[in-house]
Design a protein around this nucleic acid. Sequence first.
DNA 1: GCAAGCTCTAAGCGCTTGCTCACCTTCGGG
DNA 2: CCCGAAGGTGAGCAAGCGCTTAGAGCTTGC
Lengths: 198, 198
Amino acid sequence: MDKPWGEVTPEAARKLLVAAVEAFAERGYHATTTRDIAGRAGMSPAALYIHYKTKEELLHRISRIGHDKALKILQAAAEGPGTAAERLDGAVRSFVRWHAERHTTARVVQYELDALSEEHRTEIVELRRRSDAAVRRILNDGVKAGEFDVPDVPGTTLAVLSLCIDVARWFNAQGRRTPDEVGELYADLVLRMVTAQK
Amino acid sequence: MDKPWGEVTPEAARKLLVAAVEAFAERGYHATTTRDIAGRAGMSPAALYIHYKTKEELLHRISRIGHDKALKILQAAAEGPGTAAERLDGAVRSFVRWHAERHTTARVVQYELDALSEEHRTEIVELRRRSDAAVRRILNDGVKAGEFDVPDVPGTTLAVLSLCIDVARWFNAQGRRTPDEVGELYADLVLRMVTAQK
DNA sequence: GCAAGCTCTAAGCGCTTGCTCACCTTCGGG
DNA sequence: CCCGAAGGTGAGCAAGCGCTTAGAGCTTGC
């Protein structure tokens, strides 16, 4: 199954959250009103506050679930079988595909961090640190095995993640490329970045 | 000279614009109030409306000037002397350096497009199209000259620009790397992406 | 030496915001 | 058949929003 927001119950809370993701992605957190969210979910503005204490809690739930998913994708690739090159290919391919396919969610997850409360942001930043660690581990493995030539592992880790994340900003579902095609292109480009020359 | 916002006069209008850049970068366009902008500039809220018709006009001025600068950087590199590899190195190096050094401005320029009016956004999108064309030209030249191996020129152009632009999101002036160091790292990574293997 | 014009402020208007509250409905268990 | 809990609504509050207006102060041209 793996239905996008299946873990959110009851049904009304899920509908509100899906509506919030759409609204936040389209107009940004601060430009979205609680009336807009409730309206998209077919409910009155007051209904929102039965399931969520504040508008910020809604953003936090979205951000938390999204970052959990992103981290799982990268960790699965990092801990999987195969050479470092194969694992890096898989990591980039699946991470990019997620950012393209679910670009609505990803946009909220990646670009609305600043709207979180201090406490919630700290929690999310820790998840991002672990995503960074997963990619760095693959690069380090590849260098150790002599597969990769990477003079600056932390910097290259940052660049790889940055490249993938920015897909959420520009990807357009009506555009020319499918998520799979972008994933393939990006996996190829990233492998070239880390592979020994000549 | 090349003082950042030297083209904006009179002085009061410049001070308001600089204050707006800071505020928009920190909190986002929609979360920034006209009172906050005026306060940072040491003026009353009403003073803003002597120099700008609306808050959106302020954003448009910022976005326009910033995109002009970004386009100039890329066009200068594309039309400069040297091999395609040298020009691409220069383009990435200077474009990344600008996004790092002026990350406050770049953040507004790159991430607040959606807050512009339909008309203003159309104007800005055209400037971005020309930035894309400048990079694509370098890649095409390199392929024609046999310097580069790039199976998908439009896709790789997109990836290169995307990588550079995302610097504005993560770059931290208090961080470990200087703008020059990031520029050098990124120029190296991008050259690896386009250079023939083996 | 003073009218004209520009810059700026204090006050505030009309509206929207996030959120609350009194009340209504639905429904399973004794 | 009634009861209390849970999920929902319409109306509306206090605060904050973008922006306007009346008028004060300073500079300038003749």
